[in-house]
Amino acid sequence: MPIIKDHKTDGLPFSDSPKLKARNVNVFYGEKQAIYDVSLDIGANEVIALIGPSGCGKSTFLRCLNRMNDTIEICRVDGQILLDDDDIYGSKVDVVPLRARVGMVFQKPNPFPKSIFDNVAYGPRIHGLVEHRDELHEIVENSLKRAGLWNEVKDRLHAPGTGLSGGQQQRLCIARTIAVDPEVILMDEPCSALDPIATAKIEELIDELRENYTIAIVTHSMQQAARVSQRTAYFHMGQLIEVNPTDLVFTTPQHSLTEAYITGRFG
């Protein structure tokens, strides 16, 4: 049972120019329900932050958006998720190109045990995006530049990606994600393993990426949500409690649960 009966999300869960639309999404792990009737738009070129206490379903919801939950055997998703009005759970949808269109960056940087170059080239190769080696070179260079890593690695492109610092590895993963030219980037606590400087660089990057991409970011840092996002969505025990412009959420949240969470009043 959801903790609040008949809850209707407060604020502005919908967007005038939606890129992704979630409608009445319910998610179950076996018998246990983790997401209750969530409807939310993610607008084109917006950064939306998903916040809430541990276990409230942020990652679960995020993973619905590119069918990452399919990899979890006991997980069942119902409801609708539309990418540009196409149902991503449609029977004819192939998840491999879907995950190229909706890329994901994880909490812990996870470069492949390959060279920096091959890490970034991996996606374009498997998605068959390139025909010539020169072209591949260009994509790798551009992606590393857009991820703000090029200058730091251009002289050692063939060194292993795992030899980079944590912050560099995370930017490498972002480069790898954008190399396949996605439309949406999902980030699940992308900075939780990084120091403040590496974090600042990623946040700066998120702001730049917004020009070309739509971004949903899960974060435990209220300050990070406040810095990078235009809208903030607050989840509580599987329910989407409130979605509002970020400045509003952090100065005058609408729902008492949001207020209690962001002011640190959950015991």
């Binding site: 209220m222 300050q223 406040a226 952090f250 100065t251 005058t252 962001i262 002011t263 640190g264």
Partner: peptide
Amino acid sequence: RRQPAASDLR
């Protein structure tokens, strides 16, 4: 120290 938010910030 606390980076207060919402009613605390106000």
